[in-house]
Simulated scan of single mutants.
Amino acid sequence: MQEQLIFEDHYKKLGLEMFSEENLGTINGTQFGYDIKILFIPEGYELTIDFNHYKVSKTSLFFLTNQHLTIEKGKEEAILLYYNRDFYCIQIHDKEVACDGLLFHNIFEIPFVELTDTEASDIKNLFQHIKNELEWKDSSAEEMIRTYVKQIIIRATRNWKKQHLNNDTVRIPSSEFDIFRDFSRHLEIHFREKHNVADYAELLHMAPKTLTHKFKSLNLESPNQLIINRILLEAKRLLIYTDKPVKEVAYNLGYEDPAYFNRLFTNKTGNTPSNFKKNYSSGKKYNF
Rank of each mutant, 00 (worst) to 15 (best):
M1A: 14
E3T: 15
H10W: 01
L14M: 14
L14F: 05
G15C: 09
L16D: 01
E17M: 10
E17T: 13
M18N: 09
F19N: 01
F19K: 01
F19E: 00
E21D: 15
E22W: 10
G25D: 05
I27W: 03
N28I: 05
Q31W: 08
F32H: 14
D35N: 09
F40R: 10
I41Q: 00
I41Y: 00
I41K: 00
E43C: 06
G44V: 00
E46G: 07
D50V: 03
F51M: 12
F51H: 07
Y54T: 00
T59A: 10
S60M: 03
L61Y: 05
F63T: 03
H68E: 12
I71C: 02
E76D: 15
E77I: 02
A78F: 03
L80W: 09
L80N: 02
Y82V: 07
D86W: 12
C89E: 13
H93I: 11
D94Q: 09
A98T: 06
D100G: 09
D100T: 14
H105W: 04
P111T: 01
V113M: 00
V113F: 04
E114C: 11
D117L: 13
T118V: 10
T118E: 15
T118M: 05
E119Q: 15
S121I: 04
F127C: 05
Q128F: 11
H129G: 04
H129N: 13
K131D: 07
E135S: 10
E135N: 10
W136Q: 15
S139M: 07
S140W: 11
A141P: 06
A141W: 07
E142G: 03
R146T: 08
T147D: 12
Y148C: 04
V149D: 02
V149S: 02
I152M: 07
I153P: 00
R155E: 13
R158L: 15
W160Y: 11
K162T: 12
K162S: 12
Q163W: 00
L165Q: 05
N166W: 06
D168I: 09
D168A: 11
D168W: 11
V170C: 13
E176P: 00
F177Y: 10
F177E: 06
F177L: 08
F177K: 05
F180Y: 10
D182A: 08
F183Y: 01
L187I: 01
F191C: 05
A198N: 02
L203W: 06
H205L: 13
P208D: 07
T210I: 11
H213C: 09
K214W: 06
F215E: 01
S217V: 08
L218S: 04
Q225S: 09
I227M: 03
N229M: 04
L239E: 07
I240V: 15
Y241M: 05
Y241W: 14
D243E: 14
D243T: 13
P245A: 08
V246G: 11
K247H: 11
Y251F: 14
L253F: 13
G254Y: 08
D257K: 05
F261D: 03
R263E: 15
R263S: 15
N267P: 00
N267F: 13
T269C: 04
T272M: 07
S274E: 15
K277W: 09
N279T: 06
Y280V: 13
S281H: 09
G283Q: 08
G283C: 09
G283H: 11
K285V: 09
Y286V: 08
N287V: 13
